[in-house]
């Protein structure tokens, strides 16, 4: 197994210009952090924050791949378009999430997800 790409991560400090790997690496970290957020937060809003992080890392991936991978001459800006649509969905998602959150709060007086376990067993 060769880890020659590890060197390209270091190249940020040695060579001019950024490369695809840098963005992917950051996006991976963001994704993992978002995941941890989702899993460890007891607060529903915290889970929402985690989801935002994960979606952001996804958009970042789209943009990075679009930017760095070679394309034909008449290529459409597919990366930005994907980003736009994802952002639209994110807006929707957070709106619905907020609605559900408030509803949960009205109903059970809390937004602790561990206590919203009526479907247990």
């Amino acid at each position: 197994m060769e880890f020659n790409k590890l060197s390209s991560l270091v190249s940020l400090f040695t060579e001019p210009g950024t490369q695809l790997e840098h963005y992917l690496f950051i996006s991976g970290i963001l994704f993992t952090l978002g995941l941890i957020n989702c899993l460890l937060r007891n607060n529903a809003v915290g889970i929402l924050i985690g989801i935002e992080l994960i979606l952001n890392s996804a958009i970042l991936n789209f943009m990075a791949f679009w930017h760095f991978l070679p394309q034909g001459s008449d290529a459409s800006p597919s990366g930005p378009l994907a980003a736009i649509f994802i952002i639209v969905l994110v807006a929707c998602e957070s709106a619905v999430a907020l609605a559900m959150l408030l509803n949960l709060n009205f109903k059970s007086g809390t937004i602790e997800v561990d206590r919203a376990n009526k479907m247990k067993n």
Partner: peptide, 17 residues
């Protein structure tokens, strides 16, 4: 196995991951 079905959303999420 029914112990897993705790009703805890985050546990479900963890399992799916």
């Amino acid at each position: 196995l029914s112990l897993i079905q705790s009703g805890n959303v985050r546990n479900y999420f963890l399992f799916s991951i």
